[in-house]
Amino acid sequence: MIASIFDLTLCLVILAAAGAATLGRDAFMAVVFYIVYGILIAMAWLRLGAIDVALAEAAIGAGLTGVLLLAALARVARKAGKEPASAASVPATTIATALAALVITIGIAYAFLTLPEPQGLQGHVAENLAASGAENPVTAVLLNFRGWDTLLESIVLLAALLGIWTLAQDEAWGGRAGLRHVTRPGSVLAQFGRILPPIGLLVGVYLVWAGSKQPGGAFQGGTVLAAVWIVTIMAGLMQAPRVADRALRAALVIGPVIFLALAVAGIFAGAFLVLPPAHAGWLILAVEAVLTLSIAATLAMLVFGPPEPEEKR
């Protein structure tokens, strides 16, 4: 009973935070509420027994998406100047939209309530877990049973980065990604930039290492490592790499390339993406290690954005 009161409260707080994030007047406040909302959703995932998802949501959904939104807000404010009205001013449109959204919500809720009995795949995963090379069932699904998803997902990340780089202005191409950050010495950010990275590095590497047995994995660990890099650069302690840098480009593609090579090599063991059970354990660890490097580099470069020309002051 206590549990369901907690769940009920959490759901109400989630809806309140989501409401403030979508309906609030001020854009900056909306983004801050969105970050809070992401952390609350991560708690909901814990309640649903999905610790891996909770880690991913807290790191990627709340953390990185929040940073991206804040950075975009600052850049747009500098370039666009005057803000358009935040919401449509026509009341009829607003009311019609609210009604339509309500009908869709009720429809989805009805569909959820009338779902047929669950036929989970837990049993199948548990039966084959020994052959997968990972003890954490989520890692086994990600890197073995549904390796296709993860392979394509790592390529999607790269594709998004390529898309962002194509938006660079010609004169800025080849330069350092994003804007240069300067902080006052002794400020909070400068201090955090020194204190957080060692802890973050430890947590990031641990999450990848632990991922084969416990909750964690390449995406969660890679995100923490990316966050360490982002904090260091935002604190002005390091500069973002040049987009033409060969070492950077190698780090970006090594994960997907090795994963793809392994997938092709799987043809000799039976079929595309098949990991021979005898070697699956260390192969998964190796793929996770290089994937982590690529994911961390790609996520950080996604946050830095395209190279920008020097600002005229």
Binding site: V138, L142, G217
Partner: peptide
């Protein structure tokens, strides 16, 4: 169920 969990992680990314 680990399969939806893995798909959701992919979705988040």
């Amino acid at each position: 169920d680990p399969v939806p969990q893995a798909m959701i992680i992919t979705g988040i990314v």
